[in-house]
Computed example of a mutant assay.
Amino acid sequence: MDFLYWILIGVSFLLAFAALIFPILPGALFMVLGFVLYGIFYSFQPFTVFFIAVQVFLLASLFVVDYFSNLYGVKRRGGSKAAIWGSTMGLLVGPFIIPVAGIIAGPFLGAFLAELLIGRKSMGESVKVGFGSVLGFLGGTVAKVIIQAVMIGYFLFVVI
């Protein structure tokens, strides 16, 4: 049964990483699910107050990075609130409309179209904002990969 338990825990962690590619998935919840599954299958005893505090801090960091990376990328290139919303919508919808490439094309097109149509910016300025959105997303994704790896590493350090 140990093998099956660890497979389920591992799958929940993999789904947390899959959420980096498919933002509609609740990656943070899958991360927490892995910890909860371990507690149910084995014991919650290794989860000290310090462990929980560190994991909650890192979990909150995931949300902060997610929000501010997009905001930073768009604002850095002169984008408006409309571009931020467009980028976010493109990020959520893009991977489903254009599999694989939609994770990059979605935020770009969302920010680009929002600036062009709502922000009334020129084509060149809108393209710059679209690229800013993609750069913000990619930077945020790298940061989230690192944070999630630290969360799992710390979890394994505590339970093994």
Rank of each mutant, 00 (worst) to 15 (best):
F57T: 14
F57R: 15
I97L: 03
L71E: 15
F68Y: 08
L113V: 02
G106W: 04
V64K: 11
F108M: 08
M89C: 06
P107L: 08
L91S: 12
F131G: 05
A53L: 08
G110C: 03
M31I: 09
V11S: 12
T48Q: 04
A53Y: 09
I147M: 01
V150W: 07
A111Q: 14
L92V: 09
Y5P: 04
Y72I: 11
I24L: 01
T88E: 14
F41W: 08
I24W: 04
F108V: 09
F131D: 04
K128P: 13
P99A: 04
G110H: 06
F50W: 12
L92K: 10
T141L: 05
G119I: 05
L156K: 10
F51T: 09
K75A: 02
S126R: 10
E125V: 01
L117H: 04
F44T: 11
K128S: 15
A111N: 11
S43N: 14
G39C: 01
V56Q: 00
E115S: 03
S80L: 00
S133T: 08
M1C: 06
I84E: 02
A82L: 05
I103K: 14
G79S: 07
N70Y: 10
V49R: 05
G10I: 06
G119L: 04
Y67S: 15
L15V: 11
K81T: 14
S87T: 11
G136A: 00
A105W: 09
K128R: 12
E125Y: 01
I7Y: 12
S61Y: 08
